[in-house]
Design a protein around this nucleic acid. Structure first.
Lengths: 338, 338
DNA sequence: CTGTTAGCGCGTTCAC
DNA sequence: GTGAACGCGCTAACAG
């Protein structure tokens, strides 16, 4: 027993398929009595329009894909929720796909989602410089909004001013007397990594503190990397007096290392993390963070997508840089003179 | 400039559409030379098969939908990752959709996803008893796997033995001398809520401790609810000596209340939470939890879906109940005699 | 207001 | 091994 088609409904209601189509999507006015009969027939047959046929005809799916590099990053949950709210208002649905930080998987996702499964895409690339990812991204023929990433061809993007955020963090720490500040952050292959290092270096320079390459660990934005590098940095006697974690996943890993090593914040170590997550807000002590406004980001995502989908075409690309604030809490203290 | 179709490829390669189709999905053998020409043409034109047309013909999308009631629950991230791994091996893709605990949204999602957008669905209902949700669920005509939920008609399901888990937790607390144990958990309208209360009551009865209705707060599995109820329970002088949080979101809220009230675990209050998340594992003190094995759950999800999709039809429904273990950490102590 | 019909892009069944 | 033709379910354009 196959699912009912629009034809079956038309037959059952004693009208033509055109009329059924019209009551489904109200494209044209239909007599009230006809509407009633059609609706009854649809109900009785348990009819649902085939999304495949509809989107083949209209070349639209009313779906937007959000490709995240790591769904376990809690920040995406709040961004997605806010974006979804806005998109729903316009009749779009948001679907999330996790690339799990695997470039191959990401390419696969772009290719799959591309071929008419979504009307637009928002994406956080796992690697801005991977040629396969870039090629797949360029092949995408629906509007794309990049989140916290930049590529060398024009594309909508929403980014965060991490450089400024990091300057604030370093200034705050140096004001507390810290001169040996370590940084674990994303790699050079993604914008957040580059921005962090840029801000970090700029702030140190202003304070005339020399930059120590060994104090900077750049790599994947994962908890594992955070743990490994924190262990490396903190398990030796000449450890830094402060640590900045340039990503909430990195912080999650670093916190594990800190606990493992029995270090006490802020007495043994001052710590600044990224993002106002439950983990940073509910830690004891509460963690000072460089925070981005997820509601604001989510809203921007929604607006960018809607503009790309509903606005006039060829309106050019749009880029915005949102600020990051330093939320001072309890995880930093004056450095102890040695 | 429209995207190329199979026709364009056929034209460019000097073959018929049938041959191109055969090259794409290897349905029948094609001469090597032809294959080469077709592939070259596809490359040159940047051709991608239209998912809509394909799925209209084949009635299959190679996509599986995972409808979660709250994407900010970190447990779903690990379950999804494991399930996705298995599904990818079989050529399926996993897409996540967040209903944000809003029944109306959930209904909308079921209806949208149903009409040929996915080949199967895994779902955590926000409310097992909402008639609209149940109706929408019954209307779904692809295989469905329920996660931690049960309904009164046959359906595949993967559940956790929270009743047993809660018994372990209560026993552990009573062994520490606790007699006034509060519980904040899901409502009667979802299985986890019912199971928690069942296990809680059973364990108390065995220990001959009287059940106090006022010590049990059942409601939505959200951080907000956890916060409110924890405030209610803990802000009066005759507060319980121990608190069990029957959900990781509830615990997140309760922890906020505990911090706000300045209570110290385990001295002022013993706490047991749900799920081995970063928040419970990295808290200070580390939180004793009733933990489910997310890898195991994710694997079960993947297997159930694959069985439903690839296995023989009408093989009946499958239900499994996985166990929950008590992970003893640092958040509980002997009760102080008053 | 309603019925009819031509494709949307593809997979597949026939003939060859 | 290959090509032509049909139809999947639907929308939109047109004719009444």
């Amino acid at each position: 027993m196959k699912p009912a088609t629009i034809k079956d409904v038309a037959l059952a209601a004693g009208v033509s398929v055109g009329s059924v189509s019209n009551v489904i999507n109200g494209s044209r006015s239909v007599k009230a009595g006809t509407v009633k009969r059609v609706k009854a027939a649809m109900e009785k047959l348990g009819y649902r329009p085939s999304a495949a046929a509809q989107s083949m005809r209209t070349r639209s799916t009313r779906a937007v894909g959000f490709v995240v590099n790591d769904i376990s990053n809690p920040i995406y949950a709040s961004i997605a929720k806010e974006a979804e709210r806005l998109l729903n208002e316009q009749g779009y649905h948001l679907i999330l796909v996790d690339s799990d930080n695997r470039p191959g998987q990401e390419v696969e996702i772009f290719n799959t989602l591309n071929s008419g499964r979504v009307d637009a895409l928002v994406a956080t690339l796992s690697d801005e410089q991977d040629p396969n990812i870039i090629r797949a991204l360029k092949n995408v023929d629906v509007p794309v909004v990049l989140l916290d990433r930049e590529v060398d061809f024009p594309l909508d993007s929403i980014c965060i001013d991490y450089a400024k955020g990091l300057e604030k963090a370093v200034n705050y720490l140096t004001d507390l007397g810290h001169e040996d500040i370590a940084l674990i952050c994303g790699g050079e292959n993604i914008r957040p990594g580059r921005e962090c290092i840029k801000g970090y270096r700029a702030a140190l320079k202003k304070k005339e503190i020399s930059f120590q390459q060994a104090r900077v660990k750049a790599g994947p934005l994962t908890a594992d990397f955070g743990y490994q590098q924190a262990m490396e940095l903190l398990s030796r006697p000449e450890r830094p007096t402060a640590l900045i974690c340039g990503g909430n996943r990195i912080f999650a890993g670093a916190l594990r290392a800190i606990k493992f090593l029995g270090l006490k914040m802020p007495d043994n170590l001052s710590v600044i993390a990224f993002d106002d997550t439950e983990l940073t807000a509910l830690s004891s002590p509460e963690i000072t963070v460089i925070a981005r406004d997820t509601k604001e980001i989510g809203a921007a995502v929604g607006q960018f997508i809607i503009r790309a989908l509903e606005g006039e075409k060829d309106a050019g690309f749009q880029n915005v840089i949102l600020s990051a604030e330093l939320l001072v809490r309890e995880s930093c203290a004056n450095v102890k003179r040695k």
